[in-house]
Simulated scan of single mutants.
Amino acid sequence: MPEYSGGCGKEGAARREAAPGGDAFTEHRALLFTIAYEMLGSAADAEDVLQESYLRWSAVDAAGVEHPRAYLVRVVTRQALNHLRAVRARREEYVGTWLPEPIRTGPAVSEDAILAESVSMALMLVLETLNPTERAVFVLHDVFGYTHGEIAASVGKTEVTVRQIAHRARRHVHARRRRFEPDSAAGREVVRRFLLATTAGEIQALMDLMAPDVVQISDGGGKVSAARRPITGSADVARFVLGVARTSLTEATEIEHATYNGMPAARFLTGGALDWLAAFEIHDGRITGLYAMRNPDKLHRADTVRPLDRGDHRLWKP
């Protein structure tokens, strides 16, 4: 895949250098990736959308674009919508439970509570239950703060229609969203104690660290062994975790603490290579959600820290 800054040949590169604001794509790349990822739940698909969007941007005379960021957000939104409609059928046929592709996030994400929650596993799963247009409207309005009129230009609907879609999507999300706290020192301590109890085989200690209604979800994608359905309840989840530990953790396994999707997480490595990872949803000092990614296809990019950005929340501002 060519680099965005020079992937369209010498003529495209020269045009970008010559045009005012020619580096706009690079400048707003983190924002554009964040929008695409939240709409698609896949870093790989988001990168494909950015590549397609860059090719379209490179063919435009940037000197004639009054507000480059607004133009790029519209392009990325439309490309992401097209992509989402194409992949929905594949996700319905997915083997086992589907989880968003995890992305490694830096401290800045946890400092923005809205951004951290918007990329959390729990909320991303709720967004999967929206139709593509509802998802785009919710993400652009409730996460990025764009107005209904601004969003209308991106999704090809009237402002009145967008307002109705936003209301319907927000009601749907709010009825299903879970409690969320961004990654913190307290949360990482809970994870540390959880891992110690796991390696020691202490089932009661594990149960004490989890909320009674904790939910565990594994994604193996049919490629590796994983629970095909969510597991609920501290006792059942604790037994499942200890079973996984007995079969998956050896003396050669290295465990690293990290942050994924704004949540405290643990990386499990064998021979220095990432084997699988788990992200923890924590509220009031207890684990409420445990998300295990074992599908190797979704771990190829898991080492890269992704810069995410909500911009300044104004689509049309130059």
Score class of each variant (00 low, 15 high):
T129M: 05
S225W: 13
E202V: 01
E150R: 00
D183L: 01
L55E: 11
P107N: 09
R163H: 08
R192Q: 11
E3V: 03
R15G: 00
R88T: 12
Q164F: 10
N261T: 04
V60K: 14
R171S: 14
A252H: 14
Y37A: 01
G220F: 04
D142F: 12
H313R: 06
R239H: 12
C8Q: 11
A278Q: 11
T199V: 15
V160M: 13
H67S: 12
P132W: 08
T247M: 13
R193D: 13
G106A: 02
H313M: 00
G96A: 05
L55G: 15
A108D: 08
Y37S: 05
E117D: 11
L55H: 11
V305E: 12
K317I: 07
I103R: 03
L127K: 06
E93V: 09
R176Q: 15
T304I: 15
D303C: 02
R78A: 15
L72A: 08
S184F: 14
W98N: 03
A227V: 09
G64S: 02
F144L: 10
G311S: 07
G187V: 01
L127N: 03
R170G: 09
G64E: 15
D219Q: 09
V76R: 01
R91H: 10
E52W: 07
G156L: 12
K223I: 04
E159P: 05
G22Y: 09
P107V: 05
T26A: 15
P102D: 03
